[in-house]
């Protein structure tokens, strides 16, 4: 039954990766940039929760405060760091994103110090036992949030006016402008949604393990980026699938004693294999570059 336990843990871990990966992939599809500061939004959301908990003490209020704060931060980062570089070389934008990442980490360190903060109030303990299968409450909550977010995102993109506009902008920005779509507004909405999802992902991480440091988002950010690439960067269903695949692989690898220490190597090795077989990712479309 270890395998089933690992699978369930993997689905919930994968759900967290998927939430982060959706932000990566949407920003890539619509603004055509890799936002390497995306993982750090998770960390900032964590500190927003920490401060709210000190003031109010209610985990749910803390989560809402984190979402609001992250949305504002994400939109501001886009407005002041990335928007001035619209049309600049991709390398300049990439370096700026790395700069924003290190800026956020440093600011958090200045504001809150290097010692980890423990968010015991958000931690959720306890398990449900079904025969030999043990499922933690935080796993159930994460899975539920993942399903809600995936369904909501799918409906939003398919049936809402801004959702359709997002697809149009990601396919052809100039043609979208000719339809009357304000592409700057759509890019801002994209950053807002991505940041909100990052805040939720941060919550899912902290209910499991409540240790908060200024590098909380670094590794999950890289894993989620890997997930987005596995799924096919630019594709929202791809990010969902890539996140789940990566999370399940990670959990299963961790459950096998001989393999556990090499889990990161296993994950990135699978990324390499998938890219060798399907260079555009599992659900990505092979695009011809315009010359």
């Amino acid at each position: 039954m270890d395998f089933i336990n690992a699978l369930i843990n993997g689905l919930s871990l994968g759900g967290t990766y998927a939430m982060i990966a959706i932000g990566y992939t949407m920003v890539y599809g619509i603004a055509k940039m890799l936002n390497f500061a995306h993982g750090d939004i998770i960390m900032v959301g964590g500190y927003a929760m920490y401060v709210t908990l000190l003031l109010v003490g209610q985990p749910i209020v803390a989560l809402i405060a984190a979402i609001v704060f992250c949305v504002i931060l994400g939109v501001c980062v886009e407005r002041f760091a990335y928007k001035p570089l619209r049309g600049a070389s991709p390398l300049a934008v990439l370096i700026t994103a790395i700069g924003v990442s290190s800026l956020l980490q440093s600011l958090a360190q200045i504001a809150f110090g290097s010692a980890p903060k423990m968010l015991m109030a958000v931690q959720i303990s306890g398990t449900v036992t079904l025969g030999s299968i043990h499922i933690a409450y935080y796993t159930i909550l994460t899975l539920a949030l993942t399903v809600v977010i995936m369904v909501a995102m799918t409906l939003f993109v398919k049936y809402s006016k801004p959702g359709r506009a997002m697809v149009a902008v990601s396919e052809d920005r100039d043609a979208a402008r000719l339809m009357g779509i304000n592409t700057n507004a759509i890019i801002a909405i994209t950053f807002a949604i991505g940041s909100a999802l990052a805040a939720v992902a941060g919550y899912c991480m902290l209910i499991k393990s409540p240790t908060l440091t200024n590098t909380l988002g670094a590794m999950p950010g890289i894993k989620a980026f890997t997930a987005a690439v596995i799924g096919g960067i630019g594709s929202i269903p791809g990010a969902m699938l890539g996140g789940i695949v990566l999370g399940v692989i990670e959990a299963i690898s961790l459950s096998i004693p001989g393999l556990a220490p090499f889990t990161d190597a296993v994950e990135f090795g699978i990324l390499i294999i998938i890219l060798l077989v399907k260079p555009a990712g599992l659900l990505g479309k092979a695009r011809r570059e315009k010359v």
């Binding site: 359709r164 697809v167 149009a168 396919e171 100039d174 043609a175 000719l178």
Partner: peptide, 11 residues
């Protein structure tokens, strides 16, 4: 109506 039609192929 731009040159090359520029319809949204994936929609």
């Amino acid at each position: 109506v731009p040159e090359g039609r520029r319809i949204f192929q994936g929609l």
